[in-house]
Amino acid sequence: MSALPSIVPPSIGALPDIDAMLSARTVWRAGRAPAVAADGESTGHAVLDALLPQGGWPRAALTELLLPADGVGELSLLLPTLARLTQAGGIVALVAPPYLPYAPAWQAAGVDLRHLEIIQADARGALWAFEQCLRSAACAAVLGWPLQADAQALRRLQVAADSGDCLGFAFRDAKHAVNPSPAALRLEYVAAGADGNAWHVRKCRGGNVPSQAFAGLRA
């Protein structure tokens, strides 16, 4: 009878450094909220920055803006950021915008039009172009209006923004607010009467959703 082969247990490498993982925020202690660095890209609105866990737009990530209709002030919300990025030489791409941007208004808001790119595409091509611009690492920010985007498509956009170290902004119908989303940040517009617009934070990565809304912008 032949002898049974000896079984040699596989070598075990060095155990992970728990302290290092806690510092890197890849894990956190049960019962505690994860520590979040205030390293976001400023929105240009001090009150909104104070509401967001990272002190601004999450970098290298997708932000969803949920709207009841076009033209409720969503671009006014972003213009301070877009102006700052283009003035620093960063490229801002608009993928299949529903309306042609009015150049004099964007310029008056401080956007350097030399660094503004507009990409026209049909619904299917727009989603592909949105993802490629995010992934390219050539853009500081990419704005898209994806009409055909399921959870898998949104996840690809989130991964692309992370890969390209880019700010991604997806404008979507408010009806999608009830659906889960992989976006790092979700803001939903709500009417605020004579005081202008208000934006509710529906989801924010790395912190609790604030109960207070950001108000004050007009369409």
Rank of each mutant, 00 (worst) to 15 (best):
P58E: 11
L4Y: 13
E64D: 04
R84L: 01
G40M: 03
L185Q: 12
D165R: 14
W145C: 05
G144V: 01
G90Q: 13
A198Y: 09
L65T: 09
L52S: 07
A213L: 06
R114W: 02
G196V: 08
D173N: 13
W28P: 06
A140L: 04
A184N: 07
L100M: 15
E74H: 09
P80R: 04
L51H: 03
G89A: 11
Y102E: 02
L77P: 07
L127C: 10
P58I: 06
A46P: 00
A161M: 12
L15S: 11
L75R: 02
A37D: 15
L62T: 06
G71P: 13
V36T: 15
A219H: 14
G13M: 03
K175W: 10
G90C: 10
V36M: 05
L4K: 14
G73R: 07
G56S: 08
A3F: 10
L22H: 03
V111K: 02
A161S: 14
L127F: 02
A140H: 05
A35R: 13
G40T: 03
R218P: 00
Q212W: 00
G193K: 13
P210G: 02
E41Y: 00
L75M: 14
A184L: 07
A177Y: 04
P101Y: 11
L52H: 07
R156L: 12
